[in-house]
Simulated scan of single mutants.
Amino acid sequence: MARKLSAKPSSIHNGYQISKTTFAFVLLFLDALLVSLIIAYVPYTKIDWDAYMSQVSGFLEGERDYGNLKGDTGPLVYPAGFLYVYSAIQYVTGGEVYPAQILFGILYILNLGIILFIYIKANVIPWWALSLLCLSKRVHSIFILRLFNDCFAMTLLHAAVALILCRRWHLGLIIFSGAVSIKMNVLLYAPPLLLLMLKGMSISGVISALASAALVQVLLGLPFLLAYPVAYISKAFNLGRVFIHFWSVNFKFVPEEVFVSKQFSGCLLIVHLVLLVVFAQYRWCK
């Protein structure tokens, strides 16, 4: 009798997991239809694509000085992984927007699938809440209409999170480093990731995983580090870069003179770090 009672909750839980998985596949199918409609009927937003292609062309022509890799929007400010990814995209699409949109549409569905896996694996929301992950107009726009490098960086980041959930720490850190090599803002996820590593791994394991992640950065940047190391490090990992107020989404309400000031960026960094410390203190360090 005791065995039957103990098996019942397990079977209910398994059925719940299966229902969420089925619902996730339905969401992926429906969102794939939406992506197709967006590509077919919504005009592409021209922002960075031409600049990306110009920067990639300079790299493919043999330029290794980051100071000379430029586009319509200015000099290249992303690490070497960006160049490798967009060189492959240029090769596949011929630099044309429409086939690139199809490629990014597939990437969007892949990214959504990884995110759904993360939430199902973590089991922190009800099944119906998974649909909320498909409703972001901004995410659809970034992937399909603007073709930003954020798309590849965040997909790799989410893949790293999924691997870490499965306790594949070393592979997760390598993928995380790959995400950083495409866009440096992924480093904002590093402090909580380090905390998780310290809680879930031995010190030797943490050191080994961090060494693997660092090695990825060295190998990807090697052609530039050997030729013009100062230019590469100063451009690709420029912590003092000033962003353009016109393209801001979250801080449109901030006056431009405040937005471009070092004091504002410094305050944002301090707030970010303080919130991480508070979160670590009250959520993880118990």
Rank of each mutant, 00 (worst) to 15 (best):
A40I: 12
A231G: 13
D48I: 11
I175N: 04
G178K: 02
A209H: 02
V271P: 00
M201C: 11
P75E: 05
K121F: 07
M184A: 13
A100D: 08
K252S: 00
L5Q: 13
D65R: 10
K252A: 00
S36A: 15
I39M: 12
P79K: 01
I174P: 00
P99L: 13
S248L: 09
W284K: 00
R168L: 13
A190I: 10
G178L: 10
A88M: 08
S141M: 15
V277T: 09
E61A: 13
L110M: 12
V42C: 03
L220Y: 01
H245R: 06
V139H: 06
L27D: 05
G205E: 08
L157P: 05
K20R: 15
Y232V: 00
N149K: 03
A80H: 02
G15K: 09
V77F: 01
Y41V: 08
L215R: 05
A162V: 10
S19P: 00
F82S: 08
E96N: 10
L173Q: 05
S54K: 08
P75G: 08
K20T: 13
L268Y: 09
I12W: 15
R138H: 04
P191M: 03
A214P: 00
A190Q: 01
C151H: 02
L103M: 14
W127T: 15
V249P: 00
L34E: 09
V271E: 10
G266S: 11
I118S: 04
R241G: 12
G81W: 00
A160N: 03
S261F: 05
I125A: 11
I89V: 10
L198G: 05
